[in-house]
């Protein structure tokens, strides 16, 4: 009789011990920080930049192509190519490139360039042959004299047809040069990362 009555007591003690252990572990554990997709969009120049008007851009550069799920781009790993990319670009402070795949057309790459007066968001359309099909500037805060040059066909068309090994144009204006540098970096990274 006495032995039988000990069983529920033992069960209660074990269960109580488990609860106490869980509490102690929880209170001792460091705070767990949660990172959301929103932060990935906003926090860094090389992080995932939102593609603001894909319908308009696709219609202009890849007419008739299907609009991809812009919230879920593919990721191209660059870690394997770090050394060669650093040699070509001078630096590489990230290991992944976000890529929007456009069926039967190519890919779209986005990045922020450090303009003279604020960030410039650049959209680069690349064909399946890894040549630039078009450029769009989706956001900037440059004054009018620079804004006009950024939107000029002579500037945007200067990159069309270029490959990763091509001679990229140079510009005296800091903001235009920053855009050119970013386009080249994107193309070089994509070229390296997409090689099997």
């Amino acid at each position: 009789m006495k032995k039988r009555s000990l069983i529920p007591v033992a069960i209660l003690v074990i269960a109580g011990g488990l609860v106490a252990k869980t509490w102690l572990q929880k209170s001792a554990a460091p705070l767990k920080l949660e990172y959301s997709t929103k932060n990935a969009f906003a926090s860094k120049g090389v992080a995932m930049i939102p593609w603001r008007d894909p319908a308009k851009d696709i219609q202009k550069i890849f007419p008739g192509a299907q609009i991809p799920d812009t919230g879920n781009p593919s990721v191209v790993a660059l870690s394997r190519h770090r050394l060669s990319l650093i040699k070509k670009l001078g630096k590489l402070d990230h290991n992944a490139l976000f890529v929007h795949k456009i069926t039967n057309k190519g890919v779209v790459l986005l990045r922020r360039a450090k303009g003279e007066n604020g960030a410039i968001e650049v959209v680069v359309f690349v064909t399946q042959a890894k040549k630039i099909a078009g450029i769009a500037i989706q956001r900037h805060r440059e004054p009018n004299n620079i804004a006009v040059k950024l939107g000029a066909p002579s500037f945007l068309n200067a990159f069309i047809g270029l490959t990763a090994e091509g001679a990229f144009p140079t510009f005296p204006e800091k903001s235009l040069q920053a855009v050119s540098d970013v386009i080249r970096a994107l193309l070089v990274e994509y070229d390296a990362g997409s090689n099997p």
């Binding site: 360039a113 003279e116 604020g118 805060r141 804004a147």
Partner: peptide, 21 residues
């Protein structure tokens, strides 16, 4: 913090407001 990250600004850089020039 996020404004600086988004605009890629560091101390000494210029920041322009196009609407108010």
């Amino acid at each position: 913090y996020e404004a600086a990250e988004t605009e890629l600004r560091a101390v000494g850089d210029t920041l322009y407001s196009p609407e108010t020039k």
